[in-house]
């Protein structure tokens, strides 16, 4: 079981309120990602759940039990840290065994779980090495192994991939997702990378300045961002946000249109402009169109084989069915166009 409920949880550091009263439900078995820019309070929130920080107010329930005052060791949660936080003086085997040793798990059971975890994480050959002799990816796997063997009611991940290089990050992302599919244990995952959030989460919690901006599945956030902040944060490349007359035309203060929802033509379209920089990724091409008469440069996503060059004239047509409208307060206008 791993149901976590936050009721009016508040955190203040001195006079600074980093988390205003906040409510959140995390269901058993869910993969929840806290995402937001740095300083949004997502790590603090995770540490409150872990018990590494005291709450300044409110309650934290784990499986219905009030755990607000429970020390971290007794909450039955496992955490994977950004720096991996492996014990440098212990071998990989001892690192993984440590939580079981603390819980007085019988030796043969310890060995069985270590073997199983090592096999699942490709660490069998490294069990007798020290963390210092491992690569970043291997260290990360040891940290995950150490978390798994506890059989916790929930896993907490604090930006676990941010110290890895891009290629490894994609690999580890898949491994963590697979792990979740296999274990079906609740996972709470903190990241500033919206790609990680989109690819891994069952439920994304977008945070800004300690506030929850929106909670929903990745596709809900993609399709119906509740406000400008979420609209700008979710999706890559970023949604084009246009204001002024172009938005007024659609009865909004700001309109948002994703790069993939803009049609490109050499002859006709809503907006005419010149191609600036274009980025060819092979499968896709992102190009940036200027001189449309709009204040903003427009990002457009097209197929990989499109033949456009710097300075070419193009015509762009937004797909109005996929257009997002926001009012003066930055909130979504729900009514369809």
């Amino acid at each position: 079981m791993g149901r976590i409920t936050l009721e009016n949880v508040t955190k203040r550091f001195g006079d600074v309120e980093v988390i205003p009263p906040l409510n959140l439900d995390i269901d058993d078995g869910e993969f929840v990602v806290f995402v937001g820019p740095s300083g949004c309070g997502k790590s603090t929130l995770l540490r409150l759940i872990a018990g590494l920080e005291d709450t300044s107010g409110g309650r934290i329930l784990i499986d219905g039990q009030d755990a607000t005052e429970t020390p971290p060791a007794k909450r039955g949660l496992a955490m994977v840290f950004q720096s991996y936080a492996l014990y440098p003086h212990m071998s990989v085997r001892k690192n993984i065994a440590f939580p079981m040793r603390m819980a007085s798990v019988p030796q043969d059971e310890q060995d069985r779980r270590i073997e199983a975890a090592a096999k699942a994480l490709n660490l069998t050959d490294y069990l007798d090495r020290k963390p210092g002799q491992l690569s970043g990816g291997q260290r990360q796997r040891v940290a995950i192994g150490r978390a798994i063997v506890r059989e916790p009611s929930a896993f907490l991940f604090d930006e676990p991939l941010s110290n890895l290089d891009a290629a490894l990050r994609v690999g580890m992302r898949l491994e963590i997702s697979e792990l979740h599919n296999r274990l079906k244990t609740t996972m709470v995952y903190v990241t500033h990378d919206q790609v990680e959030a989109m690819t891994m989460a069952d439920k994304i919690v977008v945070l800004r300045a300690g506030h929850i901006e929106q909670v929903g599945s990745p596709m809900e956030l993609y399709r119906a961002p509740k406000n400008l902040f979420v609209a700008g944060f979710i999706g890559s490349p970023k949604m084009n946000l246009l204001s002024g007359p172009a938005a007024a035309e659609y009865g909004a203060e700001t309109i948002g249109i994703r790069p993939e929802h803009i049609g490109v033509s050499a002859t006709t379209g809503t907006w005419q402009g010149r191609v600036g920089v274009s980025e060819h990724l092979g499968s896709d091409t992102f190009f940036y169109v200027e001189g449309t008469g709009l204040a903003e440069t427009i990002t457009v996503r097209a197929g990989g084989d499109i033949d456009l060059h710097h300075g070419d004239t193009v015509f762009l047509t937004p797909d109005t069915a996929q257009m997002h409208r926001f009012d003066a307060a930055g909130d979504r206008i729900a009514a369809p166009i």
Binding site: A50, G51, L52, P71, P72, A73, K74, L77, A78, M79, F81, Q82, S83, A85, L86, Y87, P88, H89, M90, F98, P99, R101, M102, A103, R146, R150, L156
Partner: peptide, 27 residues
């Protein structure tokens, strides 16, 4: 000594005594 390592020990179920004995002291 990085604080995260001591936090990791706490998350791993180590009480204060275990934390000092098995993690802090050797480091």
């Amino acid at each position: 000594i990085p604080g995260e390592i001591l936090e990791a020990a706490r998350m791993d179920g180590a009480g204060l005594r275990d934390e000092i004995l098995y993690v802090l002291t050797p480091m």
